[in-house]
Write a protein that binds this DNA or RNA. Structure first.
Lengths: 196, 196
DNA sequence: CCCGGCTTCCTAGGGCTTCTAGGTTTCATG
DNA sequence: CATGAAACCTAGAAGCCCTAGGAAGCCGGG
């Protein structure tokens, strides 16, 4: 009997493709084994557990996502950079729904710190915001706002949450415009009447 | 042998509590049956399938969520209403993580249309935005922006996505401020020559 | 009282899943 | 070509969802 020639990377890549095709939830060791024409148990030499497989798909997707964002943002600044970032983000989420869903799972913080992709994400996001002249802690607040909106929009869209007939792309463009307005007029110390 | 006295409502309520306690993903028919001291098969007289159980939990949570939001928003307008809406939203998500996670699942659009809670959600959200004087399609765009940001923030927070030492509540308040700025200066006439 | 009939809950089992233990086959390398 | 390290296998435990059909409690009317 010939071997399937499995490696950890090939298994993870196949899992990512399967996630995009049938949903991240339905990525199972059994289905993956069937895809390779192999018994379930064989996969456990390459991947410790289903949990680890999912984390690996998440890290793969996170890396791909930030690579595409970095390429889109390169050489732009201000509103253009924001629009490029947003466009690349949503395009990836739409093109790779299963991979994108993978990025939402909880992953051990130590693994995140090890991953260069995640560090790059912070780097690029903060760099994009430089044009708006924010200082800490507003910078972190702005990053959290952007991440939240981008992620929330893609998640709701993927879940079919936008029922209204209004074009989803047009709403997205308007949302990005609105975020630009918010960043350009960032609320600094709004009437600090609190405290003593 | 005495009966457990199960009803559909009691089963759904227990499922919601279990979701809050151990995560929505780990709500299983078996675990629920163990909780009631009953065999798995017994639950299927009250609930057609795990899928239906999840949908029922989602509808329950959606109703509770909008009730709390409605109470918080009542009698307020403009920025105050926005802050009250946001505060109630996030408070519910933090207090009931499992129930909140349930609201994210895909649910058949016909069921959503039947649910009065969902219609109320739209009503209250659009009502809250009245003070900003937006007209369609900007109104729909603004609603989508708010929903996305609120949901994205709560989802990322629940997933442990905010690693920076910056206080999460403070970032949330700032994000709500920023959304108010965006709504108050809503970008009309997207001619793109602005800020050139 | 007691006797149908409805509902609740049960036993039994099929099929799918993850994952382990331990044996066998294949391959690269000396 | 031998040999050691992998890749891959069989076998099986345990948990999950769900169905089919039977028994046990609970209600009404006679």
């Amino acid at each position: 009997m010939p071997r399937a020639g499995l490696t950890t990377d090939r298994v993870v890549a196949a899992a990512a493709d399967l996630a995009d095709a049938t949903g991240f939830e339905s990525v199972t060791v059994s289905a993956l084994a069937r895809h390779f024409g192999v018994k379930d148990a064989s996969l456990y030499t390459h991947v410790r557990s289903l949990q680890e497989l999912r984390v690996r798909v998440a890290l793969l997707a996170g890396g791909e996502l930030i690579d595409e964002i970095a390429a889109a943002v390169a050489g732009r600044a201000g509103k253009e950079a924001l629009a490029a970032f947003a466009g690349a983000y949503r395009a990836y989420a739409l093109r790779h729904p299963g991979r994108y869903a993978a990025t939402q799972i909880r992953v051990d913080q130590s693994l995140v710190a090890d991953s260069p992709a995640l560090r790059r994400t912070a780097e690029i996001t903060y760099g994009m915001l430089r044009a708006y002249g924010l200082a800490e802690p507003d910078l972190t607040d702005a990053v959290r706002l952007l991440r939240s909106t981008f992620h929330g929009y893609c998640a709701l869209e993927a879940a079919g949450g936008f029922g209204a007939p209004r074009d989803v792309q047009a709403s997205w463009d308007k949302a990005v415009d609105a975020l630009h307005v918010a960043l350009a007029n960032w609320p600094r110390e709004p009437d600090g009447s609190r405290g003593h």
